[in-house]
Design a protein around this nucleic acid. Structure first.
Lengths: 137, 137
DNA sequence: ATGTATGCAAAACATTTGCACCTGG
DNA sequence: CCAGGTGCAAATGTTTTGCATACAT
């Protein structure tokens, strides 16, 4: 993701937008809340107000640059959208997130929707786990 | 679910609790928000304040009487817990909810967690659809 | 009687919005 | 220059909480 991409999406290249993008690209965590983006920027002295972060995040989501995820937590998480659909395993102890994709599960969902006469618009599968690290602690 | 069951769970039989239970049992919708429980009770003249509804709903969830669901909407929904795990199809147009259970999907989730070395605690699969009724409108 | 539950009003908290000012192209 | 973006403060909407009173057993 670079400034050209932003421009192509009809979004002006502004400092807040670039900073927020960079936060995602340089963070070791792929899944960030609005608040953690805020924290990252505060720490790097590149402060952007939360309201702007939320606005930019929403625009990025509309533009298809990021995805907003709902893990039944108190906040939404956002991840860069690489175009590869996947689902998530979320550790209930440490909050870490792993991604996976399973063809069989995807297919079965299509079949289930078909049986009901419905068209799938989207789906979300969250597997809440105790991750391998937390199991041994 | 009757007063005896409530008592067995260590919950006193109070008017608000009975009214809220009845709202679930008599509603044609299985999936209700705190607010829609409130509306139902207002309409039947059995008014219970929202704060109490939230408190009772939380107690019921801890007691295993109901489940709290998160469909990526602005509120949580609650359903009577009949002990049968299932997942949901949610219509993005009309908000109607259908339930389903698929053994294959359940199994695959176990396998995926196992591959990662994690233990499943819970999971949530929401298929967002356009339902058959909304397709034809 | 007494520990719980309720009602009310107020708090909490993530997210959104109105509006005046700024900025990118 | 000017539409669009930002910053700030205030609003929103759901859910939670503190506290004094009422109730179940």
């Amino acid at each position: 993701m670079n400034s050209g991409d932003l421009k192509d999406l009809g979004l002006k290249i502004t400092k807040p937008r670039m900073k927020i993008l960079k936060a995602f690209e340089t963070s070791k965590k792929r899944h960030l809340s609005a608040d953690s983006v805020f924290e990252i920027l505060v720490k790097s002295g590149e402060d952007v107000p939360l309201a702007t972060i939320y606005r930019v995040l929403n625009q990025f989501e509309s533009a298809g640059i990021i995805k907003r995820l709902n893990f039944n937590q108190d906040q939404f998480l956002y991840e860069l959208d690489d175009g590869q659909h996947h689902d998530h395993l979320i550790c209930v102890k440490c909050g870490c997130v792993e991604e996976f994709f399973d063809d069989l599960i995807e297919q079965r969902q299509e079949e289930i929707a078909k049986e009901k006469g419905s068209d799938i618009v989207d789906h979300s599968l969250c597997i809440y786990v105790t991750c391998i690290k937390c199991k041994t602690n």
